[in-house]
Design a protein around this nucleic acid. Structure first.
Length: 811
RNA sequence: GCCGGGGUGGCGGAACUGGCAGACGCAAGGGACUUAAAAUCCCUCGGGGGGCAACCUCCAUGUGGGUUCGAUUCCCACCCUCGGCACCA
């Protein structure tokens, strides 16, 4: 009887006692670093985690059997807001809450039988870890990659902290969906924009190894945009407005100019001019969400700008559809060829002038009812008329540059990473403010700046640390005078930006890690995690890796060679989350069926990248499958002593062939296709073959069952290990390597050929694989069933695809 | 609106490079074993029509066209759906 309750704890203990899954740095084998995105210790493991970690474990166990030294670490992304909120609510320390959660989740993880190397476990909320966040911060400060700036930032009142640009989606907080407010605050930023071009360039290396979807999202996020900055003179003034455009070819179609409400020209002149203070005031109050859902509004300033190509007077407007934080905060508006300008021009009755003629349809109306944004031939453009717009754009740009009023410019959509957080449960930012010496970095020797255990956390207002005098009051590292500490903490995405490197050397007290160790382990060969991190964690980590490379700490630019983004596990279409209270935990299923059944079930239900809506129908099938495996092995063990060694019979040959084919299919599915559902399906087919094999116990079935158990091992390791032991009547762990494929057996000497006549399938014939085209025709002609379609007909065409199909076309 | 992924039986999903659509599993129905149940084993299972029957035949991969001896797969147009982005000039 298959009893997972007995065998699963047995093998989990065996692996732990024997340290079976610890990475051996002395090994001569090629390394394989398999990494899953480490969990936030929210309290419970849910099915999304299970899917993620089981996928990782398939790779880890597969490559271990394929002669690779596998590194498969795990840890905890343990700083963050939920711990702090729980702490406030229950009046306990966030560290306490986090610690309990880790303990519980660890227990749950272990029940799944994932082959982690627990010897390198890390938790980011420990000083041993976060001191290196501080260390990196100081290194970046030295390189001017970290700076403090007063600017308008995203504020979430619910989380009571600022957020990075990446953490605001559609104007609401990524975590709690609260509408984001704008606040003017002085905050710390990391200059990731310095690396924008390099991050985009890295896509070449990642293509085919990362999902296209993720690369597309990142590309959009980076948002490269090459254009021109052009100076427009203000009429009757020495002042100029610098505008940014990607379409200099449409300059002759410009009919007005729009400035962002925060544009400096407005700030300076706003008092006297028509520039409506009221308008600026009301736009300031709009939330990000209101801004993008509302109709465009604007106000005329009374100013005119001179179009440098034709000296036309263009009215200057203010509107909040132009933002100060992109380009120059000023645009030239060509309503005929930009849908936003078009909308604005229609509303305020501004002229629309067509200057690009599409190639089709011709003719294009001179007062169109929508903007044409495509390519075409220029018109109404002075001496540039009749040029194609690309050539025209070049010529106009060159001429303006020659005049000294334009420069080529590449803008990026991505902004610098705002890392300050007004919260407690995070890494303290290691700087000190001194009245005399201004901002001073903490000395490296004084790291870590410890997060005090006994600060009061209220969750309202400013940074909790600010009210804690023992923390705030300190001495200036430069002059020794009285000074105060920075009380903001770091975004927790800092923690996860380099953890994959810390795993390689988790106990290092001198450096974040020893490059000698990371050189042997990095880059990560296979990374597995949710797609929701496409534009946050996966960009930050790629940036961090580049910084570490500049510091000489790592060799490669890209941290994650291959990425698999597993689909979400949802419940009735909704993501599982603690706040929604719709979390399905694995515990009950494990209790009832065992971890192996759960593993098979979750892998078999859908291909890994696809969203999986949770339903338990099908668990029984996985359970039946493992029971059938159990019984066939028992049947084999009972029969083997009496069986003949002969394996020349047709049935035996057939079984050996199927064995070879299944090994190939499962290997390809894991390695190349990453399709575990079909891998399991082919193991099921293989098992069905074994059930219909009537000489169980002979040599062929010996080979088949041995292979079956190893093929099953990455998916359902406990039962495989147990049965393998029974199979060899041994007392030790026996599965050591993946089965070899006998390639001779993959070749078929006879093939089934589909016969199509006039495009319809009319029959199937069996031929030898080396049968010639003519011989195939002869066979068809001898087949009465097929002949009836050919009688009295002229054969016009005959196509033979070797080993697959014959197609006949008649008159 | 823009970018990306999808649309195949009652359900989850298969299908190499354009070559027998529906693998594998779930659910369902029928049968065997059993005093009975569970478990197990066997059979049927996209739809319509025909035949006593082994079978024959037509339709079918979101819709409409096209290319081809042959299209779930390629091309064009459209519909629906999921995910990402939020006026990026």
């Amino acid at each position: 009887m298959y009893n997972p309750k007995e065998i699963e704890p047995k093998w989990q203990k065996f692996w732990e006692d024997n340290r079976s899954h610890e990475f051996n740095p002395e090994s001569k084998k090629k390394k394989y670093y398999c990494l899953v995105m480490f969990p936030y210790p929210s309290g419970r493991i849910h099915m999304g985690h299970v899917r993620n970690y089981v996928i990782g474990d398939v790779f880890a166990r597969f490559y271990r059997l394929n002669n690779r030294e596998v590194f498969h670490p795990i840890g905890w992304d343990s700083f963050g807001l939920p711990a702090e909120n729980a702490a406030i609510k229950n009046n306990i320390h966030p560290g306490h809450w986090t610690g309990e959660n880790i303990a519980h989740m660890k227990k749950q993880l272990k029940l799944l039988g994932i082959s982690y190397d627990w010897s390198t476990e890390i938790a980011t909320s420990t000083p041993e870890y976060y001191r290196w966040n501080q260390w990196f911060f100081l290194k970046m400060l030295e390189k001017n990659l970290v700076y403090k700036k007063k600017s308008e930032v995203n504020w979430c009142s619910e989380c009571s902290t600022v957020l990075a640009n990446e953490q605001v989606a559609a104007g609401v907080c990524w975590r709690c969906n609260t509408v984001i407010e704008k606040k003017e605050l002085e905050q710390w930023f990391i200059k990731i924009t310095d690396f924008a071009g390099d991050l985009l360039a890295g896509h070449v290396e990642l293509t085919n190894n990362w999902p296209d979807e993720v690369l597309a999202m990142q590309k959009y996020w980076l948002g490269k945009s090459a254009g021109v900055e052009i100076d427009f003179q203000i009429e009757d003034s020495d002042e100029t407005i610098k505008i940014f455009t990607t379409r200099p070819d449409t300059l002759f179609g410009a009919t007005f100019v729009v400035l962002a409400p925060e544009h400096p020209l407005i700030k300076e002149n706003g008092g006297q001019r028509t520039a409506d203070r009221g308008y600026i005031e009301t736009t300031k109050k709009k939330t990000a969400q209101e801004k993008f859902s509302l109709e465009k509004t604007g106000v005329f300033t009374g100013l005119y700008a001179i179009n440098p190509v034709n000296n036309e007077k263009l009215p200057v407007w203010i509107s909040d559809y132009v933002t100060m934080d992109y380009g120059t905060g000023a645009i030239m508006c060509v309503p005929a060829h930009d849908h936003r300008d078009f909308e604005f021009a229609k509303k305020y009755n501004l002229p629309i002038r067509v200057v690009i003629q599409p190639l089709s349809p011709i003719p294009y109306p001179l007062s169109p009812n929508s903007a044409y944004e495509g390519e075409g031939i220029m018109l109404n453009s002075g001496k540039y008329s009749d040029l194609d717009n690309k050539t025209g754009a070049e010529k106009i740009t060159d001429e303006l540059i020659k005049k000294g009023i334009a420069t080529r410019k590449t803008n990026w959509r991505m902004k610098d990473w705002l890392i300050s957080r007004q919260r407690y449960w995070g890494t303290p930012i290691p700087v000190i403010y001194c009245e005399k010496c201004d901002v001073q970095p903490v000395n490296y020797d004084d790291l870590p700046v410890l997060l005090p255990d006994d600060a009061t956390i209220t969750g309202s207002g400013d940074s909790p640390l600010a009210t804690y005098r023992k923390f705030v009051e300190t001495l200036c590292p430069k002059c020794g005078g009285e000074a105060r500490r920075e009380t903001d903490t770091m975004d927790t995405f800092v923690d996860s930006s380099w953890y994959y490197a810390r795993y390689c050397d988790p106990d290092n007290t001198e450096f974040p890690f020893d490059p000698e160790k990371t050189d042997k382990l990095l880059p990560v060969d296979q990374y597995i995690g949710g797609i929701e991190h496409a534009c946050m964690h996966l960009i930050y980590a790629r940036f961090w890796q580049r910084f570490m490379r500049e510091q000489g700490l790592v060799k490669d630019a890209e941290p994650f060679k291959k990425l698999l983004t597993q689909g979400m596990v949802t419940l009735k279409g909704e993501t599982m989350s603690k706040s929604k209270g719709n979390i399905i935990e694995p515990d009950e299923l494990i209790k009832k069926y065992g971890a192996d059944t759960l593993r098979i079930f979750i892998l078999f239900a859908a291909p890994p990248e696809k969203q999986l809506d949770w339903s338990e129908s099908g668990v029984e099938g996985a359970w039946r499958f493992l029971n059938r495996i159990w019984r066939i092995v028992e049947r084999y063990c009972a029969a083997k002593s009496g069986a003949t060694a002969e394996n020349q019979s047709q049935d035996a040959q057939k079984l050996l062939k199927i064995t070879a084919k299944t090994i190939k299919k499962v290997s390809d599915d894991i390695e190349a296709e990453k399709q575990f559902n079909t891998a399991i399906a082919s193991i099921m087919e293989f098992l069905n073959e074994l059930y219909s094999y009537d000489k169980i116990g002979d040599n062929a079935s010996h080979k088949a069952i041995e292979s079956l158990l190893i093929l099953l091992y990455p998916f359902a390791p406990h039962i495989s290990a147990e049965l393998y032991q029974k199979f060899y009547d041994s007392s030790t762990m026996m599965i050591k390597s993946w089965p070899e494929i006998n390639t001779d057996l993959l070749k078929d000497e006879s093939r089934e050929i589909a016969v199509q006549i006039n495009g319809k399938l009319r029959g199937v014939i069996t031929v030898n694989s080396n049968t010639s085209k003519d011989a195939v025709m002869d066979i068809i002609k001898q087949d009465n069933n097929l002949l009836k379609y050919l009688r009295d007909k002229q054969i016009k065409k005959f196509i033979y695809v070797e080993g697959k199909l014959a197609s006949i076309v008649t008159e």
